[in-house]
């Protein structure tokens, strides 16, 4: 602790950096965040970064190279609490939707026979495949509301809250007509809440970008969508988009 302020590091592995950008976008709260916390490392926002001991490390992005594996392990050693920050860190992101075979094929397609000198690529995986993760904050990007609530609780010494409900809960709060009932391939019931049901609010079905909600009844939804005329292949493809490595095999077996 420095002046009693918790030391925080914000790190980006492979992803679009949207989660780190979301922090910078908290314009009304930035002063409060920097007042309440000692931000030691935040490559997107400042240049005088120190890679020392941390109370909390927010890690965005998935692991896609060997270099990132050692960076991640180093962060874990320095931090008391590691947070998987955003869908890529929590589930692996879109880049984790391929199995080993598909990943090998894609790598070949893009890089051909090129030699990797700087670091060796690996199949994209969420960070908990390599280190212990204390808390998860999914989202694509994470929501401002959930992030600020999470950070505030952490800074005040309270354990962060868990969001165990599907998108449908907020979708109904927003009084949207159910898109499944309108014959749309909506993943709301299978997806963790937090986005404010932003897509269904605009009559666009949920793509599942927050990643799967715990104990989602994917098999029932698959059969429901099948009955509505979608092909099994199409449904599985949509389900796998943001579900990451942990569910990739489960979805295949549905």
């Amino acid at each position: 602790m420095n002046n009693g302020k918790p030391k925080i590091g914000i790190y980006e592995l492979t992803g679009c950096a949207g989660d780190a950008l979301l922090i910078v976008d908290c314009e009304m709260e930035l002063l409060d965040i920097f007042t309440a916390a000692d931000i030691q490392s935040f490559a997107m926002a400042k240049s005088d970064n120190i890679d020392g001991e941390l109370d909390v490390a927010l890690v965005e992005g998935s692991v896609t190279t060997e270099k990132e594996i050692s960076e991640l392990k180093d962060i874990r050693e320095r931090a008391k609490i590691v947070v998987a920050f955003g869908n890529c860190a929590a589930h692996g992101g879109i880049q984790a939707r391929f199995d080993d075979k598909e990943w090998q094929e894609n790598l070949k397609k893009v890089y051909g026979n090129q030699k990797f000198t700087h670091t060796k690529p690996v199949r994209s995986k969420p960070i908990d495949e390599f280190v212990k993760v204390d808390f998860y904050l999914p989202g694509c990007p994470v929501s401002k509301e959930q992030f600020l609530h999470f950070l505030t609780r952490m800074l005040k010494g309270n354990p962060p809250e868990h969001y165990p409900t599907p998108v449908c809960v907020t979708c109904k709060y927003n009084e949207n007509d159910c898109l499944l009932n309108n014959g749309k391939l909506c993943l709301g019931p299978l997806t963790a809440d937090g986005c404010g049901s932003v897509c269904p609010n605009h009559n666009i079905p949920c793509f599942g970008c927050w990643g799967p909600v715990e104990n989602a009844n994917a098999i029932a939804e698959l059969h429901l969508l099948k009955e509505k005329g979608f092909s099994v292949e199409e449904i599985k493809k949509r389900m796998a988009n943001f579900a990451g490595t942990k569910l990739a095999d489960a979805i295949k077996q549905l």
């Binding site: 600020l148 950070l151 449908c168 109904k172 709301g188 939804e221």
Partner: peptide
Amino acid sequence: LACGSCSNVCPTCTCYNVNDKPRL
């Protein structure tokens, strides 16, 4: 699908949850 919609749309469902939201 355990989506909770049956309760949210029901005129006689009265259950609620309470959360503490500390200010930064």
